[in-house]
């Protein structure tokens, strides 16, 4: 069973603990600008939206890579950037229509969510259950659509989010 990050933006409070967990896991420091997940703040709409790669089936980034530096893990479906092969050409960053693979100027390579080898730090760090890691079998655009519909439902005011119990 494939697992995916499921995002319920209605529960997000904008605390950015996910961004810190992500950057710490991947960079060894707290640095939200290097986070693979990012929370967008729709201030006037009273909504915060965490956003990251859905590991889409189309694998636009992988298709665009000239040197095979992005591959799909057969078991998890995760698209992984192999830093030793990435030449930093950035074509994947313009090819990904979700904008979820980004250039890291300090390493000269690209970075994207790889679900932390099956234990995403962001989901673990989220205090409100806005980001969860769940079994789901859908293709990239289906994932996006379901994400969108969840998010759209969430656009009804759901009231304040309280922290939920963590495993």
């Amino acid at each position: 069973m494939l697992k995916a990050l499921v995002i319920d933006s209605g529960k997000c409070t904008g605390c950015k603990q996910c961004e810190m967990a992500c950057s710490y896991e991947n960079e060894g420091e707290f640095n939200v600008s290097k986070s693979r997940i990012r929370v967008f703040d729709f201030h006037t709409e009273a909504r915060m939206v965490p956003y990251t790669c859905t590991q889409c089936a189309e694998a636009w980034c992988q298709q665009a890579c000239p040197v095979n530096a992005i591959t799909t893990d057969a078991a998890s479906g995760v698209k992984i950037v192999h830093e030793n092969l990435c030449v930093g050409c950035k074509v994947c960053t313009i090819a990904c229509p979700f904008g979820t693979i980004n250039y890291n100027a300090s390493t000269g390579k690209v970075i994207k969510c790889d679900l932390c080898q099956g234990n995403p730090a962001c989901a673990d760090a989220c205090p409100t259950g806005a980001i969860t890691f769940q079994d789901i079998e859908q293709t990239g655009f289906d994932k996006m659509r379901s994400w969108a519909s969840v998010a759209a439902k969430g656009s009804e005011t759901s009231g304040p989010s309280t922290p939920t119990a963590k495993h």
Binding site: T13, G14, C15, K16, Q17, M20, A46, R47, M48, P127, T128, T157, S158, G159, P160, S161, P163
Partner: peptide
């Protein structure tokens, strides 16, 4: 028919999130 309060918002890093929107 709508409430004054729409949601709560956290400051950076805050797991309490007392802010009112």
């Amino acid at each position: 028919g709508k409430p004054n309060l729409l949601t709560n918002q956290a400051c950076f890093g805050c797991t309490i999130a007392c802010g009112r929107i």
